[in-house]
Amino acid sequence: MRKLVFLDLDDTLFQSHRKCPPDGALHPVARLRDGSAHSFMTGKQRAFWDWLAADATLVPTTARDLDALRRVDLPFQSWSILVYGGVLLDPSGSPDPEWLERMRGVSNDARRDLLDLLEQAQASIQANDLAARVRLVSEFELPFYFVAKYRDGRDEDLAQLDAELIQPWLAAQGGAYRVHRNDNNLAVIPRGIGKEHAVRHLIDCLSHDGEALLTIGVGDSLIDGAFIAACDYCITPRDTQLFAATFGRPLL
């Protein structure tokens, strides 16, 4: 039976240096564009990776785009799910044509909305002197989602942008988009895009090929809950957003 692990990356398998524990050896695994180390595995995370990789097919299931995934120094050799499920790459690194065509429709339907949100956010940042940066995350010339991050430790500036612009904008869209906030990232994602959609599609495709599958989902954020729930088994690291909302709740 083939074991297939859908594995979120950031804050699940590694994290930035400021989020790492102060003691213990760290293993650099992800780089910035200038080549400098940015994200690190702890010893336990490294052992977890080695344990999974020894007997399973690991599928990165991430918000990262292709350039950011290529700066992760881990030997993924099979399928990849990128940009919150907007892109599905086969083991050769080519986009799955059926999935790309489906996501092209979703992206094209959302393009004008996302560009409008980006323009409004840029104007708000300039007008209010906010320490934040915004962009659209795109792949294959298709915009998939909007992301905002605070700078210089000024998380209150991102909170202001969220309250004064993004939340009213979302309300005006009638539920067509969802927002994900985790640490310094705030993403606005069309409902048609989601890791869970890509995970279900890949499981369905491989099952139709006659493979018996055991599927495991691993993630840290609330938004990961949907894709790991599509798997046979679910794993979340302790002391994460998803852990706090589930296992971390006190018993009634």
Rank of each mutant, 00 (worst) to 15 (best):
D55S: 13
D55L: 02
A56E: 05
L58A: 05
L58I: 15
L58R: 00
L58Q: 02
V59L: 06
V59A: 04
V59N: 01
V59I: 15
P60W: 06
T61F: 08
T62V: 09
T62E: 01
T62Q: 03
A63N: 07
R64P: 09
D65I: 05
L66S: 12
L66W: 12
L66M: 10
D67Y: 09
A68C: 07
R71D: 01
R71C: 02
R71T: 04
V72T: 09
V72D: 01
V72K: 02
D73S: 13
D73M: 07
D73R: 07
D73T: 06
L74N: 04
F76W: 05
F76M: 00
Q77V: 03
S78N: 06
S78R: 02
S78D: 14
S78Q: 06
S80G: 00
I81W: 04
I81C: 03
I81Y: 03
I81D: 01
I81L: 08
I81E: 01
G85V: 04
G85S: 04
G86H: 03
V87Q: 04
V87I: 14
L88P: 00
L88M: 10
L89W: 08
D90S: 06
D90P: 05
D90M: 07
P91Q: 05
P91H: 07
S92Q: 14
S92N: 10
G93A: 09
S94H: 13
S94I: 02
P95T: 12
P95E: 12
P95V: 11
P95A: 10
D96E: 14
D96K: 01
P97K: 03
E98D: 14
L100M: 10
E101K: 12
E101N: 11
E101T: 11
E101M: 10
R102M: 03
R102K: 12
M103W: 05
R104Y: 00
R104C: 07
R104I: 02
G105R: 12
G105S: 12
S107D: 05
S107R: 00
S107E: 07
N108A: 09
D109T: 10
D109Q: 13
A110H: 06
R111H: 11
R111D: 11
R112H: 11
R112Y: 07
R112W: 09
D113E: 14
D113Q: 14
D113T: 15
L115K: 13
L115R: 12
L115D: 14
L115A: 07
L115H: 14
D116E: 13
L117V: 08
L117M: 11
L117R: 08
L118S: 01
L118G: 02
E119K: 13
E119R: 15
Q120E: 13
Q122G: 08
Q122I: 00
A123G: 04
S124A: 15
I125S: 00
A127W: 05
D129T: 07
D129Y: 06
L130F: 06
A131G: 00
A132M: 10
R133H: 12
R133E: 14
R133Y: 09
R135Y: 08
L136R: 07
V137I: 12
V137W: 01
E139Q: 15
F140W: 13
E141G: 01
E141A: 15
L142A: 11
L142C: 08
F144E: 01
Y145R: 02
Y145W: 10
Y145F: 15
Y145K: 08
Y145N: 07
K149Y: 08
K149F: 11
R151D: 13
D152M: 09
D152I: 00
G153M: 08
R154W: 07
R154N: 13
D155R: 14
D155C: 09
D155N: 12
D155A: 15
D155F: 14
